[in-house]
């Protein structure tokens, strides 16, 4: 008996064959894992955040393992938009699934410039705005913490491109729903959440923080319940689709996010441990649907609160 299960999903015009994608910063430019499996089986890839100029990133150590987690302070190390367009995009020929490009900047103008340059690139299916950067002009306060700034940023970027805009939310805020609504009001086509949770580890022998940047962002299974809760809250408060992430390792984890209201899910840190996990998750989702008699995975989106 073979039951056809529909895993496909359309998020703001980004047509994905299944809802499993990779999280920004954990999959390079989609090229590093080509050796390990057929990346084209995924729903989409999201590449490492790109900035206007090359960024060297933070001083090492940049990563430290924590209980069921990974604290990182990479600091947006990336080669910059010129290199990305000239050198990286041409190498993406073997990637046939949608490529979502994450962009980041210190000022609204930087996001706008990045968006208008990527607008002309056929290979780019959508933009994800990484708003967890300090806004230089606003005295270093993160965009992600101000609803007003997020709305302004989203409006400005929308004017610069016809590509779908996904705003990636930070969990390091008092009320993530307020920020989500601001992004939606600004015209975001979708939201993705969560980015990493601010954290710190201290080396007691050295009596100093372990990371070169002192503070870092926590990712991995340790943050999963936080992320599921935030997806649950946000997806009920906005009308645009939500991409859920935070510690996803298995199909069951992915289902938690989908049932909490996510239309798609992203695998981040777990790629490092089990690079083929996204494929196992796709298989696991299909299996679950067959067992539960679910013909279309879209039926499960937000089913825990609907």
């Amino acid at each position: 008996m073979s039951i056809e299960v529909d895993l496909s999903i359309d998020i703001a015009g980004i047509k994905m064959q299944n809802p499993v994608i990779t999280a920004s910063g954990t999959f390079g430019f989609g090229l590093d894992y080509l050796h390990y499996y057929d990346v084209n089986k995924l729903g989409a890839v999201v590449v490492k955040s790109i900035t206007k100029n090359k960024r060297e990133g933070n001083p090492p150590p940049r990563i430290i393992e924590t209980p069921a987690g990974l604290l990182n302070s990479i600091g947006l190390a990336n080669p910059g938009i010129d290199f990305f367009i000239k050198e990286v995009i041409p190498q993406m020929d073997s990637i046939r699934i949608p490529v979502i490009v994450s962009i980041a900047g210190d000022e609204i103008e930087e996001y706008v410039e990045l968006a208008s340059r990527l607008d002309k690139q056929d290979r780019v299916a959508a933009l994800e705005l990484n708003i967890s950067c300090p806004n230089v002009k606003k005295g270093g306060l993160e965009f992600s913490t101000s609803a007003e700034q997020v709305e302004k940023l989203t409006v400005s970027v929308r004017k610069a491109t016809s590509l779908p805009i996904i705003v990636k939310l930070s969990p390091n805020v008092t009320d993530i729903v307020e920020i989500a609504q601001a992004a939606a009001a600004g015209g975001a086509h979708a939201l993705s959440l969560i980015n990493t949770v601010l954290g710190m580890v201290i080396d007691v022998k050295m009596r100093k923080p372990v990371l070169g940047n002192k503070k870092g962002g926590l990712a991995g299974p340790a943050i999963r319940p936080i992320a599921v809760r935030m997806v649950w809250d946000v997806s009920q408060a906005v009308d645009i689709p939500v991409i859920g992430m935070g510690g996803i390792c298995t199909a069951e984890d992915a289902l938690q996010f989908i049932m909490a209201g996510a239309s798609a899910v992203a695998v981040g840190t777990w790629n490092f441990v089990n690079p083929t996990a996204p494929l196992d998750i796709i298989d696991g989702l299909k299996e679950f649907c067959i067992k539960e008699g679910v013909k279309d995975i879209k039926e499960l989106i937000g089913c825990s609160w609907k």
Partner: peptide, 12 residues
């Protein structure tokens, strides 16, 4: 190292 394959930029 986190990934060992060049994807994370952790091993700077």
């Amino acid at each position: 190292m986190a990934c060992g394959v060049g994807a994370c930029q952790g091993c700077a």
